[in-house]
């Protein structure tokens, strides 16, 4: 049976893992390779590295740390942030990343998804979506979410964008529900369920994990393929080995 995946997300700045408090005041959390190996040993199924500086500062991802991670890590990993072209993606993939994730650049120029899928295959192409429920009850996307001042609302409905991204060649969708992000009150199950109904490729839940039960809910109720989380893993509030035992006890297939 295919396992449900648990994916810690690490924010990277200048080759170090950092933790931001409301986008600012980044605290150094340690060396990227050291933390990556720690999560690998704990049983993480995959890792996402988000270069938080590359995107807002218009820089490319520094391939130096991607290569350092690739040399030592033996589980799959994805790099997000600062990828705007096939050439950017090629540099990151050749440095050893298994997948690349694009968000704002895909909203600005949806054809980028197709270009990446043609060049590297759909299995490499992850589309990240930041989404909020607006006053009229519709979920709509946000772009430029790397910094609060730059954030924009392009007006696209989230469910339409999920369908369009798949049509263009997205091999996986990460849906970050901004309303629940950082609150640790659980994933946005209603939104994830709606997304699942229109998403035929693997769907990754993001935003809101605070306790083991939240992961079980996302897998069982929203049928997501993977769950991504940052702060609960970094703080140690949820330990991956214990989480996996809990999920298995709930009858959810995980890799032990």
């Amino acid at each position: 049976m295919l396992s449900r995946r648990l994916i810690p997300c690490l924010d990277v700045r200048d080759g170090r893992v950092v933790k931001g408090v409301r986008f600012r005041d980044h605290v150094d959390m340690g060396d990227i390779v050291e933390l990556a190996l720690r999560y690998r040993d704990a049983g993480a199924d995959e890792l996402v590295f988000y270069d938080i500086a590359a995107s807002p500062e218009g820089r490319r991802v520094d391939r130096g740390w991607v290569e350092r991670v690739a040399r030592l890590i033996d589980i799959p990993f994805c790099v997000a942030g600062g990828i705007r072209s096939v050439e950017d993606a090629r540099a990151v993939l050749h440095a050893g990343a298994d997948k690349i994730s694009i968000n704002t650049p895909a909203l600005e120029r949806p054809a980028l998804i197709a270009e990446l899928a043609d060049a590297f295959g759909v299995q490499c192409v992850v589309v990240g979506i930041d989404s909020v429920r607006e006053a009229d009850g519709e979920w709509r996307v946000r772009s430029h979410t790397g910094s609060p001042d730059a954030m924009r609302a392009p007006g696209k409905r989230t469910l339409d964008w999920i369908a369009e991204a798949q049509r263009l060649g997205a091999g996986e969708i990460v849906l970050n529900c901004m309303g629940s992000d950082g609150v640790r009150a659980g994933y946005d199950i209603a939104q994830l369920k709606a997304a699942r109904a229109v998403c035929q490729v693997p769907l990754v839940a993001s935003g809101g994990a605070g306790a083991p039960a939240h992961f079980a809910q996302a897998f069982r109720d929203a049928d997501v393929d993977a769950a991504l989380a940052a702060s609960v893993f970094h703080s140690g509030a949820v330990e991956i080995p214990a989480l996996k035992q809990f999920l298995r006890g709930q009858g959810i297939e995980v890799r032990l």
Partner: peptide, 15 residues
């Protein structure tokens, strides 16, 4: 072939 609950590409850890 995929199918209900079976996503393609087959992506992830399997036994």
């Amino acid at each position: 072939q995929g199918g209900p609950g079976l996503r393609v590409p087959h992506m992830g850890w399997n036994t």
